[in-house]
Design a protein around this nucleic acid. Structure first.
Length: 201
DNA sequence: AGTGCGATTGACT
DNA sequence: GTCAATCGCACTA
């Protein structure tokens, strides 16, 4: 069977609406190109951060840290959480609007050995289940902040035949403000989704 | 300049 | 289930 190259997601295909983008990205691929090889994973869990949302880094406007949230949709916003874990977001909306989608978990697809090396475990389920874990597995840090995920760079979004697995919605994880809004989305039944069982029904 | 607190994780009871 | 690690950032003074 012929090898089918993964195609980049064109920016024009990304929904401008951030909640729609969070759902749209489920099932899509993240491809990380490194000198040692290529890593990829299927997005199985996302969260939306919106304008007027007290839990969002952009709630109080643009700062040095969050300026990538204000880029046109399809750019990376990467920051360090708790001094220990990097978080990968996809900027949403048009330029100047501070909204983004946090990528919370991946189903590992390619580059397993490299991911295992980065993570220090061979447990498949633990390689990219959780935002900090997936960033570590893909060797994502602040140097990728602002990267164009629709371009031919070191990290990009790939299309995938997404059969339309059932999507669940829940409250977002680990936040205290605006905590009741159902802005977390995940593929029902995926073993690679993070979070407590009660939120993954 | 000092302080409090996370969009988390891993180790441990 | 609980809890400390760890550090950049936003906020106060």
């Amino acid at each position: 069977m012929p090898h089918q190259a993964i195609t980049h997601l064109p920016r024009a295909e990304l929904p401008a609406n951030t909640q729609a983008l969070a759902r749209f990205l489920l099932g899509k691929l993240i491809i990380r190109t490194l000198p040692e090889g290529e890593i990829s994973g299927r997005i199985v869990e996302t969260e939306a951060y919106l304008v007027g949302d007290a839990a969002s880094h952009a709630f109080r406007g643009m700062t040095v840290r969050n300026r990538s949230m204000f880029l046109e949709r399809g750019h990376a916003y990467v920051y360090l959480a708790y001094g220990t874990s990097f978080m990968l977001n996809v900027s949403s909306q048009e330029a100047g609007v501070g909204e983004a989608v946090l990528i919370r978990a991946l189903q590992p697809v390619k580059g397993l050995a490299l991911m295992e090396h980065h993570r220090g475990t061979t447990n498949l389920r633990d390689l990219a289940r959780g935002p900090g874990r997936l960033a570590q597995a893909l060797r994502i840090d602040r140097s990728l902040d602002g990267a164009d995920l629709c371009g031919p760079g070191e990290i990009w979004l790939g299309a995938d035949e997404f059969a339309g697995d059932e999507v669940g919605a829940s409250a977002r994880i680990g936040i205290t403000r605006d905590a009741d809004r159902l802005l977390r989305f995940y593929l029902r039944g995926s073993a690679f989704v993070s979070g407590p069982r009660a939120l993954n029904l």
